[in-house]
């Protein structure tokens, strides 16, 4: 007897797989997943040490081609998102490595969410070393100081900016009628 169609009397109406699935989807939709903005302060706190004292870490060159297509695709997707977030478009090999490391860090932070969508990534990323975070921090520091500089420039008094412009610009030549 393997069919459950005959339910015993006196028991409540059984759930269906459809209703469980719908309930779980609703529950999942109501949960807020972490964003890069959420984890940024964690980076800052975690790597708020002396960068100079840390030995240089050799980062492996992760080539998505080494992995099956779907992992490569997911990896590329995260890399794109990361570049978008940090407004960078890596062109040189060191830059690509830095972004790769940042992606790895993000992936580690995202493991629960990542794992649900791509279980294989969990295993892949869990093997990566957290030490790469130092390089990531260097890149984030650079980006952050650029942002701070931009903000400082924006907050400078108008008179200072005008002075700067006057220093830079040559005096107008008088136009003869």
């Amino acid at each position: 007897m393997t069919d459950k169609s005959e339910q015993p009397r006196g028991l409540p109406e059984p759930e269906t797989l459809e209703s469980i699935e719908a309930e779980m989807r609703l529950e999942a939709a109501s949960k807020v997943e972490p964003t890069l903005d959420d984890i940024e302060p964690e980076f800052e706190e975690e790597f708020n040490g002396d960068l100079e004292e840390e030995p240089a870490v050799e980062m492996p060159n992760l080539n998505p081609e080494m992995f099956p297509d779907f992992i490569g695709g997911a990896y590329g997707m995260i890399a794109d998102k990361t570049c978008e977030k940090w407004q960078c478009s890596p062109t040189t090999e060191p830059e690509r490595k830095q972004v790769g490391a940042l992606v790895d860090m993000c992936a580690q932070r995202y493991l629960p969410a990542m794992g649900r969508k791509h279980p294989e990534l969990t295993m892949l990323f869990s093997t990566l070393s957290m030490a790469w975070g130092m390089r990531v921090f260097e890149m984030m520091n650079r980006k952050r100081s650029e942002k701070k500089q931009a903000r400082r420039d924006a907050e400078r008094p108008v008179s200072d900016v005008v002075d700067d412009i006057e220093e830079l610009e040559e005096p107008f030549e008088e136009v003869q009628p």
Partner: peptide
Amino acid sequence: VIYEPAELAR
């Protein structure tokens, strides 16, 4: 291997 509750039912 399944991680999502809804996926389990589906």
